[in-house]
């Protein structure tokens, strides 16, 4: 198991081999045709980033939680926004069960004040919000689209990546209510110590600019 309170210094040292490997990867050359940037684990478990309130966060470090959920969102993506209530319900339902939730805003042009206004309008002020302007978390997780959920378990393992549920069947086509709640299903499995039944699902939404 990972220790609860490591300092960030050890986390930084940890990144060196990853950077080396990423540098190697860049020699592989572009290969068109891949549809995802899926990863089995996050790049750096101790990666630290400052949240919208100026607090240092290590979103991949579990610190006693069962799993950490990052929801990648865009403030002006209508599909992201349609999930606001469900995101708050998820946090309320699973927060007490030691599942940590973070909202990651990926628009590089979004200003902190606009983020705050957005979250207060959409009732998301209880979330830990991170403004990932330089796509540190996007790259670390391989997120490509919003609203994409990435569930990180022990050892930085990505236990689930994909849609929150099947509310949308295509752009502009909402069912009104979801009939397959993939993220909830994944969290239930994780809490019960079982394998996630569908660990990767396709997200309908707005692509992240670097994807």
């Amino acid at each position: 198991m990972w220790p609860e309170n490591r300092n960030l210094e050890s986390g930084r040292r940890n990144r060196a081999p990853i950077f080396f490997l990423l540098a190697l990867l860049s020699f592989c050359g572009p290969s068109f045709g891949a549809e995802t940037r899926d990863k089995a684990t996050v790049d750096d478990i101790l990666l630290s980033i400052t949240d919208a309130k100026g607090m240092a966060q290590t979103p991949f470090e579990l610190r006693g939680d069962v799993a950490s959920v990052l929801i990648f969102v865009m403030h002006d993506c209508p599909i992201s926004n349609a999930y606001a209530r469900e995101l708050e319900r998820l946090r309320q339902d699973y927060g007490p069960k030691k599942i940590r939730f973070q909202l990651v805003f990926v628009d590089p042009d979004l200003k902190p004040a606009a983020l705050e206004k957005h979250n207060s309008e959409y009732g998301l002020t209880n979330y830990t919000a991170i403004l990932d302007s330089t796509h540190v978390l996007v790259k670390a997780t391989g997120a490509t689209i919003t609203p994409e959920a990435v569930v990180v378990g022990t050892n930085g393992k990505i236990l689930y990546r994909g849609r929150i549920d099947n509310l949308y069947s295509a752009w502009g086509k909402s069912r009104g209510h979801a009939t397959e709640k993939d993220l909830r299903q994944a969290l239930e499995a994780i809490l019960n110590g079982k394998a996630v039944p569908n660990p990767r699902t396709k997200v309908i939404g707005c692509y992240i600019s670097s994807s």
Partner: peptide
């Protein structure tokens, strides 16, 4: 990641790849 990037899994790709 490195081994997967060499095509052992269709779901893995280098971070810089632009999807078709």
């Amino acid at each position: 990641i490195l081994s997967l990037a060499h095509g052992q899994s269709p779901t893995e790709a280098p971070a810089k790849t632009r999807p078709k």
